[in-house]
Write a protein that binds this DNA or RNA. Structure first.
Lengths: 350, 350
DNA sequence: AATAATTGGGCAATCGATTGCAATATTAAA
DNA sequence: TTTAATATTGCAATCGATTGCCCAATTATT
């Protein structure tokens, strides 16, 4: 598509018979310009339908007001909420957001990061893909002096700003809650353990058991059960043990917890009386299932805002690279019916 | 943050004692460059840790491989799926996506569009905010020869590419389905009628009633019931009519339908036997409620892909502006339990 | 062997805004 | 009224990659 030529500051300068630099100063609200001239330029610019050319400006200034975001999947509640939170802040600051999804693939993540580096974004915000891989691409970002913020799924070893949930504490509380409710054999559905977040959640689980003197049983811990299907599968296996668990903590996701619930319901096992369930993430649907599912809210929207604020407050115009900070956000245990053994009679509970 | 100087093509040229233009040609895989030279340049570039400067390149080439997307809310299933679909395609083409959310506010939408114009994006993809407003900002986009694709919530009057769902047909089918199931007094929960999509859905509803010779009753049509709360409120009102409806089509959203379901359940009205329910959007939770909710799937992900493909196939490099096309995607009625009066006995249905 | 056709590569202008420095105009101070 | 200080404005270089145009070298053609 052929573009007809746009109005530039030179066109305005020509028309007003002044220098382009004056036009530039007038438009950028510089102090070294006469108020009258400024007004005139602004008026003329509007008349001539002038639009600031960000590309040229960026090139000259060497930085562009753009932040790149790389997430495994845009259309996942957790991530889209975080992005929404980030956007809320960056919008106010006049920054743009470039969004990429890694689809959980390492190679694609590397690709996305490189694209963002090429774009000379001011900052890259990333939650790494589940697929194991090296972290050279992140090191690249640092080497090129581009700000880097990791969130949620972070690489501990890399010394960058990080915004995380206190996964361990949240898991600890969830499991402690189950114990308090009287559950004694609590199973754990784990995520891929090369991701720190899942290791932390496991630690929380182990911590809570230890605290209450409950033995840890290997047969009650299922690796890689982080989709609905895998959660269901693991549940089927657990429930057919000689001594099945009386509660399942799906530390990976609510989807996994949903799988648990469906299998239990199908088998006629009553939740929460014979089986307690707790998920993770506070997906909207957890409120709707019957029984509703106890879960952990990660305060995603505010997490997004925290991430963006971190950039603007600590990193935007630092002369010397700021000392990387780790911000931990406390998730919240949302207790619903799937884990409340000591149920209030139904007719009183709503 | 101070950037140390990056490697440019001039640095490479200097080192190899050749012209910068040759470096450029080597890097851009031009045909007018010797294979050996090209290899040498590529090797040296890698050694010197060279990164292509997209800002400079964009400025010179006058266009940037970026597409702007403006949606009411990023963290809404419908939109995040569409964005995911768009990204899937644009990623392959090496394009970047800049995402903005209007938060359903007209002023903010205008702002977003202006930002994108300033960025000189190649194309703007937009679904307009619910808040009524003028469409000057969209006209601006066209005047500036920037490609414009509207989707879902489109302004009919503007002659642009459009990707829409066939809302009328989908509604027609949904209501026809309800009628076939034996429901006779079918209520409609409407969205704001200044948005075409909601008018179309209403038309489909009216069409289906007409086709089956069912009278249209004003008291069964509720305006502006497009959140869960508003849906619930409208339902409460409907169900306390002297002659209440025996089915409710929440044409606005599944959230609204959920409100309906909750009120019905609370009142002890059995769904689907005494009240049929149909929602719109196929939100994940509709599968999980009890009973599961009949709804309409809009094929969001593929809609996103369609939108992006439209750009690349029809608009990317047209000399003359292509004749705007309207692509209509056929949504799919997903029949679940909330509308199946003639129920198969429970023990056979799973 | 001489001429024509390719191929490879250099030069320099260009995209549009920004900014350090110099020049001029205006106002304040003496 | 003159000088000093300050406010405006202009000039020209710059950011880094791209590309039209031209020249030189190599290869093909007769």
């Amino acid at each position: 598509m052929k573009r007809q030529k746009r109005t530039t500051i030179y066109d305005i300068a020509l028309k007003l018979n002044i220098a382009a630099s004056s036009v530039s100063r007038a438009l950028s609200n510089s102090s070294k310009i006469n108020a009258d001239t400024k007004a005139l330029v602004l008026k003329t610019a509007a008349e001539m339908n002038y639009q600031h050319n960000v590309m040229a400006s960026n090139l000259r200034k060497g930085n562009n007001q753009t932040i790149g975001v790389v997430v495994p999947r845009i259309n996942q509640n957790f991530f889209s909420n975080i992005i929404a939170g980030i956007e809320e802040i960056t919008y106010d600051k006049g920054y743009n957001l470039i969004i990429c999804q890694s689809n959980e693939l390492h190679a694609r993540e590397v690709d996305c990061v490189n694209t963002l580096i090429n774009q000379h974004v001011s900052c890259i915000i990333i939650s790494i893909a589940a697929e194991t891989g090296s972290y050279d691409h992140l090191q690249q970002v640092l080497d090129r002096q581009i700000q880097l913020i990791q969130f949620d799924r972070v690489v501990e070893a890399l010394d960058t700003f990080k915004v995380i949930n206190d996964n361990e504490q949240a898991s600890f509380e969830a499991v402690a809650h189950l114990i308090t409710q009287g559950y004694k054999r609590i199973a754990l559905l784990e995520g891929p353990l090369h991701l720190d977040i899942f290791r932390q959640r496991k630690d929380g689980y182990l911590g809570a058991l230890a605290k209450h003197g409950i033995p840890v049983l290997a047969e009650l811990m299922c690796e890689n059960a982080w989709t609905k299907a895998l959660g269901a599968e693991a549940t089927a296996k657990l429930l057919s043990l000689p001594e099945p668990p009386d509660a399942i903590f799906a530390s990976t996701s609510d989807f996994s917890a949903l799988g648990v619930l469906e299998v239990a319901t199908a088998k006629g096992i009553s939740v929460p009386d014979s089986l307690g369930i707790c998920g993770y993430s506070n997906e909207p649907f957890t409120e709707i299932t019957s029984p509703s599912i106890t879960t952990i809210d990660q305060h995603t929207m505010s997490m997004g805002k925290t991430i963006a604020n971190l950039y603007f407050q600590e990193m935007e115009v630092q002369e010397t690279p700021a000392e990387p900070k780790i911000v931990s956000i406390m998730p919240e245990l949302i207790i619903r019916k799937s884990s409340q053994k000591k149920l209030i009679p139904k007719y009183l509970s709503d």
